[in-house]
Amino acid sequence: MIIDLPSTTTSQVNKKLVELRESGGAVALGRVLTLVIVTGDGTEVEKAIQAANDASREHPCRVIVVASGARQAAPRLDAQIRVGGDAGASEVIVLRLYGPLADEGAGSVVPLLLPDAPVVAWWPSDAPESPAKDPIGALSHRRITDAAADGDPIVSLQKRVESYADGDTDLAWTRLTSWRAVLAAALDLPPHEAVTAATVTGAADSPSTDLLAAWLASYLGIPVRRVEHPRGPGIVSAVLERPSGNVEIVRPDGKVGTLTQPGQPDRRVSLHRREVRDCLTEELRRLDPDEIYEATLQGLDEIVRGEPAAEVAGSAEAGS
């Protein structure tokens, strides 16, 4: 069910939500958090809502979308309420702000927050330089950005380093979960030797490649080279150097990687780029600070930039 409320107020939106709940129980109260999505008023609105709806099946929540419209227009708030099949396991409130109201997203959000429930802010793209100091970020227990979706991913990632505050995270980091799990599991197998150095290869504009290199530098306390790959976005390979032989993961096609290590047969491992909905679902599982992500950001300065790598067979077709 989709209900449009043109030229409205947040008070009228709240009143309509109460009417829906009282008339048919269309809006359930079992919400565990409020997810605030801050975006422009373009096509990415529907993509973000769909990802939030998918994530809400594990985390029932109230989704508030703050979509900024034309700032040259007269001040106006257009709202839309989605419940039932159009909202997954959540209730979705879309606020389109025009004119001077376009800069007042936080004031429009506050009256609609669920009482006594955590608040998570998500910028699908174009996040503020300091999310924690943003008016909506300041309301939130957790702040989710995505450096890979910004115009200059590497510059965006550097901003995350400079502005980090407890509760910050980035989907470029979340996309590394599978890579980190495979590498950690490989080191648990014999021979149990210390890793002396590592090399991570990926596209020049891949923040996930930078974060994987920084994580290895921080986690293992070793020098790590970050090498640019000439084709395709995302991570192409990771090599851990040990005295008896290297541990290598090579993913030339952006989907399936090959794990090679001494004394073990080569193994194919699934390393397909994770969908936004899967990354968002993972991030909503925790509301406490991510100390490993913080340490990884601090380790970015320890990465040694290497020469561009020669092409491997195929190309990395997907992000992390």
Rank of each mutant, 00 (worst) to 15 (best):
residue 4 D to E: 13
residue 11 S to M: 10
residue 14 N to W: 10
residue 16 K to S: 12
residue 18 V to M: 12
residue 20 L to A: 05
residue 23 S to R: 15
residue 26 A to E: 14
residue 29 L to N: 15
residue 31 R to N: 12
residue 34 T to A: 11
residue 38 V to C: 08
residue 43 T to Q: 14
residue 47 K to D: 01
residue 60 P to W: 11
residue 71 R to H: 05
residue 72 Q to C: 05
residue 73 A to M: 07
residue 73 A to I: 04
residue 77 L to Y: 03
residue 78 D to T: 12
residue 87 A to D: 09
residue 93 I to N: 03
residue 94 V to T: 13
residue 95 L to Y: 06
residue 95 L to W: 06
residue 102 A to K: 04
residue 106 A to P: 12
residue 107 G to V: 10
residue 110 V to M: 15
residue 116 D to M: 07
residue 117 A to P: 06
residue 120 V to Q: 01
residue 123 W to R: 00
residue 124 P to L: 05
residue 125 S to V: 11
residue 126 D to W: 07
residue 126 D to C: 12
residue 126 D to A: 10
residue 132 A to G: 14
residue 136 I to H: 07
residue 138 A to L: 15
residue 147 A to H: 00
residue 148 A to D: 02
residue 151 G to P: 06
residue 152 D to S: 14
residue 155 V to M: 14
residue 157 L to W: 01
residue 158 Q to M: 15
residue 164 Y to R: 02
residue 165 A to D: 10
residue 167 G to D: 04
residue 170 D to Y: 00
residue 171 L to W: 00
residue 178 S to F: 02
residue 179 W to D: 01
residue 182 V to R: 06
residue 182 V to I: 15
residue 185 A to F: 10
residue 188 D to W: 07
residue 193 E to F: 11
residue 201 T to F: 04
residue 209 T to N: 05
residue 210 D to A: 03
residue 211 L to I: 00
residue 216 L to K: 01
residue 216 L to Y: 01
residue 224 V to L: 09
residue 226 R to K: 07
residue 230 P to K: 03
residue 235 I to F: 00
residue 240 L to Y: 04
residue 245 G to Q: 09
residue 246 N to W: 05
residue 246 N to K: 08
residue 248 E to P: 03
residue 249 I to V: 10
residue 251 R to V: 14
residue 271 L to V: 03
residue 273 R to M: 10
residue 273 R to S: 14
residue 276 V to C: 01
residue 276 V to K: 01
residue 279 C to I: 01
residue 281 T to P: 10
residue 281 T to L: 11
residue 284 L to C: 02
residue 292 I to T: 14
residue 293 Y to C: 02
residue 301 D to R: 13
residue 304 V to Q: 12
residue 310 A to M: 11
